[in-house]
Simulated scan of single mutants.
Amino acid sequence: MTQTRRMQVLHAVVEDYIRTQEPVGSAALIARHHLQVSSATIRKDMAALEEEGYLVQPHTSAGRVPTERGYRYFVDTLATVVPLSEAQRRAMHTFLDDSVNLQDTLQRAAHLLSNLTGQVAVVASPSLGKSRLWHLELVSVSDTSILAVVVTDTGRVAQHVLTVQELPSREHLQRLCDAVNERCGSLTLRTAASRIRALHLGDGMDDVRTLPELVAHAFEAMADEERTHELFMSGVSTLAHQRATAQDLAPLFDALEERAVLMHLMTELSETPDSRGVGVAIGSETNTPGLIHAAVVTSGYGASEADGGQTDAGKAEAAAVAPIAFVGSIGPTHMNYAVTMASVRAVARYLTTFLDHTGTTETSMAS
């Protein structure tokens, strides 16, 4: 008996259980996987895998089912993630290309991913903290209020009200906007804030002297926002049709309501992907009680590069930066990992390309 064959048996058990959600016996393995050994040998291998914590036998006379450790080994040893078929890719592009704006694209991406996997899909909007300034507009809305409208390179639009004691002239507001857009365009909001504070506005601009500090503070506030409500989710209703007990589903529904927890978990996974470009957490690895019987597959999309003012060392460090947002799928631990990983990765790559195109278009418009 070799360790290699034993792990082949484990892979076969996981594959069969994912397909049937029924305990897997030795006879079924031999019939489906042509293992070229006797049923007694397979039973011996399965018993050893049970002792090692990879399988469990729910009943004395039943076959085995994978444990969390068994799923983890299976996921880690998947040789490759098979890409979507050409027909699937065409269908994905056809569906997503019809979107009218970023929010519509993200909502469609969540719907598409849910359809591809049959699970809950979660898509986060690009983080303001990692996005870059494309355009600032300052609009007077009252005698003491100015609305700062910030458009980022990812298409996100954020607003912040600035309270002033005296309203500057429209001409001076425009001169400040022009200065910010010229000198801070393509910088992250936090870096732009530092540069705005150092702006020299020239003579005759006394009525806007206090505005750079207010604008810089607004940029920093936007960068700090968690924006947990900017999560696009689809497929929650499909959970009701999963082959799971109410005892398992209730905490999972509760976990889906905790958007801040999901945001933290999936952001962390997307920032530490494996060599296949995805992050996978199974059961207790999620550190979330409601997901103890679930698995999460996540991939980041977009890219945040070094600001122009950074040193070469800083740029090198930022070359491997975290993505600006994530795409993820949540399902039972017996999910089809190969399909889910391929689908999550494909949607993430589409969104990265979409944002690249959006940024290129906006830069062209700005020119």
Score class of each variant (00 low, 15 high):
Gly235Cys: 12
Gly277Leu: 01
Ala260Val: 12
Arg276Thr: 09
Asp178Tyr: 11
Val208Pro: 02
Val261Gln: 14
Leu176Met: 12
Ser194Pro: 00
His200Ile: 13
Asp206Phe: 10
Gly279Val: 05
Gln165Lys: 07
Gly202Tyr: 11
Pro168Gln: 03
Leu162Arg: 05
Glu268Val: 10
Leu173Gly: 03
Arg227Asp: 01
Phe253Trp: 11
Pro273Met: 10
Leu211Arg: 04
Ala216Asn: 04
Asp203Leu: 14
Leu176Trp: 12
Leu214Gly: 00
His160Tyr: 09
Thr228Leu: 05
Gln159Tyr: 06
Ser237Thr: 15
Leu231Asn: 06
Thr228Arg: 08
Met205Thr: 12
Glu220His: 05
Arg170Met: 07
Pro168Glu: 06
Ala240Ile: 11
Met222Ile: 11
Arg190Ile: 13
Val208Glu: 03
Asp178Met: 08
Ala221Ile: 14
Arg197Tyr: 03
Glu226Ile: 08
Ala193Asn: 09
Gly202Met: 11
Ala246Met: 05
Gly204His: 11
Phe253Ile: 06
Asp274Trp: 13
Pro251Trp: 15
Glu257Asn: 12
Val215Ala: 01
Leu214Lys: 03
Pro212Leu: 02
Gln159His: 06
Met263Gln: 14
Thr267Ser: 05
Glu171Lys: 14
Leu167Asn: 01
Gly283Trp: 05
Leu162Tyr: 09
Ala223Gly: 01
Ala198Met: 13
Gln242Asp: 08
Ile282Ser: 00
Glu182Met: 05
Thr238Ile: 15
Leu211Phe: 09
Arg175Glu: 02
Pro251Cys: 13
His200Trp: 10
Ser284Gly: 00
Pro251Met: 14
Asp248Glu: 13
Glu225Ile: 01
Val261Asp: 09
Ala255Glu: 01
Leu189Tyr: 07
Glu182Gln: 10
Arg170Glu: 11
Ala246Asn: 10
His241Asp: 12
